[in-house]
């Protein structure tokens, strides 16, 4: 499943540019503590987090995540979106909670 397939659901909205949409996804990881993310997340994971700061992009880039999803309509500022575009990290927003987003992603066909 590719990042662009997530956007088939009307629950998920692209907030960065389209440069990373062809990336493959593999598994979901959710945490708001970056050391947990560093310690346990894997390549091509979809990261779901309410942390909306620049360090999320650093970690996403270092670990080669497929995309980052911000649940609960968490606001993401322009600086972060611009940096994500530069690093080709896809950012997606959803009104869903973290748990609902995880369920929805599995329904869409995200593989572990």
């Amino acid at each position: 499943m590719k990042v662009k397939d997530i956007l088939q659901s009307s629950n998920f909205h692209l907030i960065s540019n389209q440069s990373g949409l062809e990336k493959d996804t593999k598994g979901i990881f959710s945490s708001d503590l970056l050391s947990h993310v560093m310690g346990f997340a894997g390549e091509n994971n979809i990261l779901i987090t309410v942390l909306n700061n620049i360090n999320v992009l650093g970690v996403a880039s270092l670990l080669d995540f497929s995309c980052v999803i911000f649940p609960h309509n968490v606001k993401v500022n322009e600086t972060i979106i611009n940096k994500a575009n530069e690093l080709e990290i896809t950012l997606i927003s959803t009104h869903l909670s973290t748990a609902q987003a995880v369920l929805n992603l599995y329904e869409l066909g995200v593989e572990d």
Binding site: L33, L34, S35, H36, M38, G39
Partner: peptide, 15 residues
């Protein structure tokens, strides 16, 4: 506030 300070840094490095 920036997502750090979980107390996992040095244990992660050691691991």
């Amino acid at each position: 506030e920036n997502g750090f300070g979980a107390g996992m840094g040095l244990p992660n490095i050691k691991a």
